[in-house]
């Protein structure tokens, strides 16, 4: 699944943001082993925009948790930000998450009774950033998601779309390499959802943060540059690597992989070699290819 490194601007070598090799995850439930993931291999490159789709129970949430360093595989090798997860103790995992991963959840998961700017600043607390700097950076990040005027509002004073924007700002305030979004539009109406999606895509294009999105929504998935379809704990289709569907043939049900053929841009993005830390960069020509720069605020 190595993307064809087209124009290797940055000296050719590209460190994958996340690399999973034959990763499996088995749960022990009342003494019975349940395999949620059965040998998944996947590489996320900086700047990627990929969608993880599949029916519930397919293992996509489990994979998401593994990719985000919230959980550990019971088999295989998982390397996040150049570090082998199996070699890390829980505190080191926490630091790894703080430094490399941003999470956006379906239910927003904002702290109640806490202002937008403090919610966004939360990850910086665990990084030991001073209160003043935290507020500055959080405020700047809120400005980038179009909420510069809502700094001191609390979650219950904001619409769903605004809350999810706060969550996105929180995920990105640490300048992570990967943004993991679990059904980010799942709790939003279609108009608001579309605006949030556009914001995510814009941030992906501008800052080069890899965007990994778990979704049920085929329309949403169709916008990703790469779609990975899961079923029964294995990847059954990967739009970037059609051969990946070989492992285990999808059992009965629908031949869903076929529907994915209609994906618009299977062409791999030559993911900004500029790397993270240049938010307004957009230097990569490919970034412009998304062509969507929402500035409508999208407050529904």
């Amino acid at each position: 699944m190595t993307e064809p490194a087209v124009a290797d601007r940055s000296a050719g070598e590209r460190v994958p943001a996340i690399e999973a090799v034959d990763v499996s995850r088995t749960y022990q439930l009342d003494g019975v082993s349940v395999a949620a993931l059965r040998g998944v291999s996947l590489t996320v490159q900086p700047g990627d925009y990929l969608a993880l789709v599949g029916p519930s129970g397919s293992g996509k949430s489990t994979l998401m948790h593994l990719l985000g360093g919230l959980d550990r595989p019971t088999g295989g090798r998982l390397v996040i930000g150049g570090r082998d997860v199996n070699a890390l103790a829980p505190p080191e995992m926490a630091t790894l998450r703080n430094e490399t991963i941003g999470f956006v959840f379906q239910a927003f998961h904002l702290l109640p009774r806490t202002s937008a700017v403090e919610n966004v600043a939360l990850p910086l607390v665990y990084r030991g950033v001073s209160a003043r700097q935290r507020r500055e950076r959080a405020a700047a990040m809120l400005g980038r998601v179009g909420l510069g005027h809502r700094l001191d509002h609390r979650p219950n004073q904001m619409s769903g779309g605004e809350q999810q924007r706060v969550a996105i700002a929180r995920a990105l305030v640490t300048e992570p390499t990967v943004l993991l979004a679990d059904e980010p539009t799942g709790n939003l109406d279609s108009v608001t959802g579309a605006a949030v999606l556009e914001l995510l895509e814009q941030l992906n294009a501008e800052s080069g943060v890899a965007l990994v999105m778990v979704t049920h929504d085929q329309e949403v998935a169709a916008r990703a540059h790469r779609r990975i379809t899961m079923r029964d704990g294995v990847v059954v289709a990967d739009s970037a690597d059609p051969s990946s569907a070989h492992d285990r043939p999808p059992s009965v049900d629908h031949g869903r992989p076929a529907t994915l053929v209609s994906a618009p841009s299977a062409e791999p993005r030559s993911a900004s070699g500029s790397g993270p830390g240049h938010p307004s960069g957009g230097s990569g020509g490919a970034a412009g290819a998304t062509g969507r720069l929402p500035h409508d605020g999208g407050t529904a």
Binding site: P90, P91, A94, T95, R97, N98, L111, L122, Y126, R170
Partner: peptide, 16 residues
């Protein structure tokens, strides 16, 4: 519990 989960997700160590 959810708050704890969120804090951990954004980088809080068990000790924090």
């Amino acid at each position: 519990t959810r708050e704890i989960g969120l804090r951990k997700a954004v980088g809080a160590r068990p000790r924090d």
